[in-house]
Amino acid sequence: MTEDLRALLRAGLHAELPPPIGDVVGAAIRDGRRLRRQRRLGLLGSAAAMIALVGVGAVVLRDGPVAVRPPSAALPPQNVPPGPTAAPLAALQARTLTVHSGTLRADGTRTKATSGAMLVLMLQLLPPGRTSHYGVSADDDLHVQLSLDGGQGPAMIRVAVGQNAPLGDDLPGGAFVTISDNPRDCEQATTVDAQWPDGTLVEVGLPACRSAPALTHDQAIRLAADPRWGVTMAEKLVTEGANRFPKVPVLG
């Protein structure tokens, strides 16, 4: 009996003409990598939130409930100088767009990227405002974060850089940028990914738990799609990062 059932089941499948399976494996890998990065960023954000809470708690215990003030940063706050205002990069009707930078990757001698270099580049790319609460992830992962107050209260910005397999040779020069809004998860309220043909991937995370996101979509795209990001970065940035950020709190 069971052999008959087996035969019927297999006959059922064999009579089918299945459509091509396509790149189901590649799609799963891309989704998996995206989720893995988001998990890492989420962990980084949770650790930052814990540190912030501990900081607030310490202030409350020492000074009493009336004296609650924003937690102090481990590094002295810095100001991002005003820079030239650029026109919006794109009207964000679509969720995914291509940003043409005019160059595939930044020129010049590049060396292994560091968290310090990432913070330096972040400060160059952010809109004017007061920055604080610098943090980097452990294990040499290229994940950094800082808080930016552009006049409407501080809000966190996280940047992660990774390297995937190259996307291919026949792709237009520039980054593919994907904007994801996630209203159900305030720690990852907005995520902007920039993927370069050489496999470089930059992810900007904008939490919105206690305030609005620190950046607009256009500002986040400008940050994510800068060609200077990578697992290797310009020597000048790395050197400056070592000088300006010799010691940054490690989160998580």
């Binding site: 089918e16 459509p19 799963a28 989704d31």
Partner: peptide, 24 residues
């Protein structure tokens, strides 16, 4: 997946989701 759901498109989606979870 197809034997379970009898829909090739859904079977494709289920397979991709399962592979993503396996990847993670």
């Amino acid at each position: 997946a197809f034997m379970l759901c009898h829909d090739w498109h859904l079977a494709q989606d289920l397979t991709q989701t399962a592979l993503t979870k396996l990847f993670l």
